[in-house]
Each structure stands twice: as C-alpha cells, then as structure tokens.
Design a protein around this nucleic acid. Structure first.
Lengths: 164, 164
DNA sequence: GTCCCTGCAAATCTTTTGCAGATGG
DNA sequence: CCATCTGCAAAAGATTTGCAGGGAC
C-alpha cells in the first residue's frame, strides 16, 4: 500500500522535526484513517479502532487528530454538524463538496484545479497552501423532493426546517 | 440600507412559507448580522446585541441562527475552532478563505466565479446551489515566520504545533 | 384565541486538560 | 534515563431541549 508508506513517512518526518514520538497509537490511527473513505469524526475513528481490540482512549484520539492535522495529513472539514469532521488530503482529485443545508448530506466532486491562479496569489503574499477545498452549499435532490411533498412537521421545523 | 431590505424580505418570505413568525428577536438578530463584516459566532452576536440592551437569550440566538441558515441568509463556515462560525452570504464577491492551520487566521479572497462550470453540473443532478466557498488550508506568513524563529515551546506543541 | 416563541435552567454532547503511571528513543 | 505519551476522570465549552409564560397574527 504505497499511500500508507508515503503518509507514514510524512508523519515520521513531522514527529522528528517536533521531537515527538512515533507511538503505537499514532501508527494505528494513521492506518485506520487512510482506510477510511470520505469524512470521519473523532467518535467514528475511536469506534473503528476499538472494534479491532486496539482501543485508543478518546483523549489520545483527539490529541493525535490534532497532530495529524498539523502534519498536513488530514484536515478539518466543514460539515455543519456539532462535532468536527476530518478527511485525509492526499487525494487531490476528489475533495470538493456539495453540502445540503438541511440534511447535511455531502456529495464529493472532482477538483479541476481551476483555482490554481488564486493559489499563486496567496503564495505571493506569504501564505503557504497545503490543500484546498471548494464547498457548494445548497439543497440536495432528496430534500427538495421532500419539500415538494410537504413532508414537514413541527418537530422538523425546529431542528431541520425544509428549505424550499 | 438596501441590503437589509432585501435580506429582510428573504426572511419574511421564508417565515411565511413555513408558517413561522417575524418576532422582534429575529429582526434584531438579522440587523446585527448584516452589520457584521466577516465571520461571527453565536457568542459574538449575543454579546453585540446585549450591549445595546436588546438582550436575546442564548437559546434563541442558536434557534434563530439555525433558521437564518435554512433561509439562505447566512451559512456555517469552516473555521477550525471548537464552536461554529457563520457569515452572511449576500456578498458574492468576497467569500473565499485562506485559513491557517496553526493560528486559524482567515484571509478573505475575492471570488472569480471560475467554479461556475461545477455549479452547472450539480444543478443537473438535482442539487440546488445556494452559495459556495473555496477554502485554502495552509500556513499564514506570520506562523511561517514564527516557525523560522523557533518560537516554539512545549505548551504550544500540544495545542498549536507550529508546522514547518 | 391559537400556536409559535422566548427565557431559563438543566441536559447533552464534544473536546480539552491535569495527573500518575507507562514507554519510546 | 528522561521527556513525552497514554488512559482516566473531571472540567470546560458549545449547543440543544423541556417547560411555563408571553406574543404574533
């Protein structure tokens, strides 16, 4: 699995630079994350790892997700829920999002690099670009349909109002 | 202030469609938000409003930010902190972001509409685009400088590790 | 008058932190 | 050996919810 080797090297380099250690927990976490497609939350990784009897405490998961973010391996991504979501960033071909403001469903989109120009401008101003993401906010087909069918009730109005 | 009129109409229409009411709190909130440039959190709006002796309870602020989001007036935006951030979306010219993964500083960027093409594809698949946002993740000039100066200590390593 | 809204306080959920013992280099 | 890590439990912080009284239409 060459992606794993590449990302592991990235992590090792980062840890060495920062005088941090490559622990078993960090290795397991990285492996698990690279196996995950699309988004994941701290909760989800913790659960996936614990199913394999490799339990990592919640605190360590959070601490290490933070480290992986700063190592440039994953990024926090906008998901519209109470908790954060992460995704790995090695796949430069597929990391744009169309996000439904009602149900929060996310559709992934290919990246056409049309934003290369803006990236150059940023670099000129001293900002070092590591990755980027384009997000479309709107209504997914299902929620539009549900709205048409008037499947709305008081409870939903409070927490998930259907947009027209 | 024509932006205010326009957005207020948008809110009124939404409320009418949903059989919800235009309360004083909702009006005050909308005004305050439109006066705010850039990002804001629930906490910040609550404070700004209360300074003017128009106090709105925390619970109502949250409930109504949710409604304004579904009305397409504001959106939750990726900010990398524990709490959510919002911004109004009427300004189509300036809503892209360059976000530092270390200090979370956000630089706003003009929108060149180069993503119009992807928008069309989404619409063809039934996704109704309301707004969009392009985010660059990376390191701001200040954090790169600080890293060079080796201004790093143990405390910062745990919570805000400087990336090279 | 009816239903929706608000404020309050409590609950819930997510993330962070202090500490003591374990462990990588 | 020593500084960093981990797990645990507690704390902190953000957001949601139940309820009773108030308000829009």
């Amino acid at each position: 699995m060459e992606i794993y080797e590449k990302e592991k090297k990235k992590l090792e380099d980062f840890l060495k630079r920062k005088k941090l250690r490559l622990t078993g927990e960090r290795t397991v976490l990285l492996e698990e994350i690279l196996k995950t497609h699309g988004h994941f939350s701290a909760e989800e990784v913790t659960k996936k790892v614990s199913i394999k009897n490799l339990t990592i405490s919640r605190a360590s998961v959070y601490r290490n997700l933070n480290i992986l973010t700063l190592a440039g391996i994953i990024r926090e991504t906008a998901y519209g829920e109470k908790h954060k979501h992460y995704e790995h960033i090695y796949d430069e071909e597929l990391h744009h999002h169309a996000r439904c403001i009602v149900c929060h469903a996310v559709t992934e989109l290919p990246c056409h690099r049309c934003e290369k120009n803006m990236e150059n401008v940023l670099e000129k101003h001293g900002f070092q670009v590591i990755s980027h993401e384009l997000i479309f906010y709107g209504l997914c087909a299902e929620c539009r349909q549900r709205e048409k069918n008037k499947e709305t009730n008081r409870k939903e109005l409070v927490n998930k109002i259907y947009y027209e």
